[in-house]
Design a protein around this nucleic acid. Structure first.
Lengths: 294, 294
DNA sequence: CCATCATGATAGGCAAACCCTATCGAACCG
DNA sequence: CGGTTCGATAGGGTTTGCCTATCATGATGG
């Protein structure tokens, strides 16, 4: 039964019988009959079929929600038992927004020091993808904005709050100011994250609130690109303070704080909501919460 | 896998291999190997074994929580698919505190009128048992106090608030008063519910607050017994107003309201918390919430 | 101290389920 | 119309599941 549900999840994700089968390491006929049996057991059609995959039926959509929960909880059960057998050990997958990568790395390093037998995969993703990955069981936890988008059923632990800085070459007209405001940035040639990043949308909003239009003449989904462009001259970018410091050191760049009217957006760990949590997630949430107190 | 988890649930409940097997309709060796396989798959021992069942290990306790969720969600998945196939039809099990039985019956009757193909089992239980039954998947929903005990992870819909009355023979010294207070009941020979019922504990507390000691000379877990004792003469009992009216009519008994200082305890539907709910539970919760507005 | 009982584990055999390879049939594409 | 993609179906070997029968171990009691 559970293996059928896993097949169903794979099919819903891949939207293709062959690829779904391959992703599970079974052949296409196996998956095909598996789905058919699942439909027979539940007594409803889950998948629309023509001569190819035609999407889920409404019942299929509904069943998908339950399947995710059941399969997710089963994996968590297994994981938890493995932990009680081997102690905190295994693999943790983290999906992180680009501007929080240094914090995620600190989080993982700290956790790793305490629990040396846990290893990590850290992926850079935008905040929307992170939520999708949590839903699809493709990541164990995320690091993202906590207060800005509907997060759904998740547990969170705040790690820090963002404040922004202008990163520029020292000869930039604003570079020697102690502090600037968003409005000061009116004519600056900027290099910013792509609009699928929430950070970019926050910056856009800050510009709008200041009554000026954003002028992103160069976009990237990587903060490394932003800073290397700034270093190559003629550009400036806006980054959270901690990240600016990390990336700009050694390149002879100037960092100028931008005045903040309200408290910055909270950033922290996001994990699928469960009662109870597995021991690793519990420990990771504690570790993340501890960082905010430093 | 899921069938193994069901075996594990049955074993945890029965605490006996043979009976657990019987309750599932399999033989004892089947269940025995099933548990053994589950332990092998999870890599931990779940059950302590001597020559007989020796309780769950700590890992087993932990696994039990997950197993309940996984098996419960699987049943809900099946149920929901059945509903999308056949419409609202099937069987709904309700566990109800004795003093709310008439309301539960109204709830079920109203629901039944709207959804004729759903039938009911209504069991009278104390509030503690109701929570246990919800946990063990032995009932689909309960009707109980909402504001008094830790309810755990449940959804609720308030139906009404209790107010108490004295039920007595007309010759009782308090019977002709418009309203009495708890303190007035000092010397009365009372017939009350057993102390495992929360209603009784509430009454005890009311007496304590009024500075008098409860004098229950006759106890029962059935309100029918209470009222029939009152009718047989020489006794009085305390019941929620609605129930007093229902049970006392036709027996020539007097009903005297007891003055209430604060708003009465909320009573309502209690269902396992899930996101999303199954269609039946959704409908039942709506039906229950609607009753409070009448 | 031995006979009996209760309880769970183990062995052997049969049936069902599972998953593979091979193949088919329908839609789509140039 | 020939080629290609995609999912369904058929047949067969292997595995799993469940049953009956039996065994091993403590507890119970005379």
């Amino acid at each position: 039964m559970i293996s059928k549900l896993e097949m169903f999840l794979a099919l819903a994700k891949e939207r293709h019988f062959g690829r779904a089968a391959e992703s599970l390491g079974v052949t296409q006929p196996t998956l095909s009959t598996g789905i058919k049996q699942l439909e027979a057991q539940l007594g409803v059609q889950l998948v629309r079929r023509g001569s190819r995959f035609g999407g889920l039926t409404p019942e299929g959509q509904r069943a998908l929600t339950w399947a995710r929960r059941i399969v997710g909880d089963t994996r968590r059960l297994r994981e938890e038992m493995r932990f009680s057998r081997e102690g905190l050990a295994g693999h943790l997958r983290l999906a992180v927004i680009p501007t929080a990568l240094t914090w995620a790395s600190r989080l993982a390093a700290g956790f790793s020091a305490r629990h040396p037998r846990v290893d990590f995969t850290i992926l850079s993703r935008n905040s929307e993808d992170i939520l999708k990955m949590l839903e699809n069981l493709e990541t164990d936890a995320g690091v993202s904005y906590l207060d800005n988008e509907p997060l759904g059923r998740v547990s969170t632990a705040e790690m820090y709050r963002e404040s922004y800085t202008l990163v520029s070459t020292p000869d930039h007209p604003l570079a020697d100011r102690d502090e600037i405001s968003w409005a000061d940035l009116g004519g600056t040639r900027l290099c910013l994250l792509t609009p699928d990043m929430q950070n970019r949308r926050i910056i856009n909003k800050a510009f709008m609130d200041a009554g000026i239009a954003p002028v992103a003449q160069m976009e990237s989904n990587s903060t490394v690109v932003l800073v290397s462009h700034v270093a190559s001259g003629g550009w400036a970018t806006i980054l959270p303070g901690h990240l600016a410091e990390f990336l700009a050191t050694g390149h002879g760049l100037a960092i100028t704080p931008i005045r903040q009217e309200v408290e910055g957006h909270a950033i922290g760990l996001v994990a699928p909501y469960q009662e109870p949590h597995t021991p690793v997630l519990e420990a990771l949430l504690r570790e993340a919460a501890a960082m905010s107190r430093d």
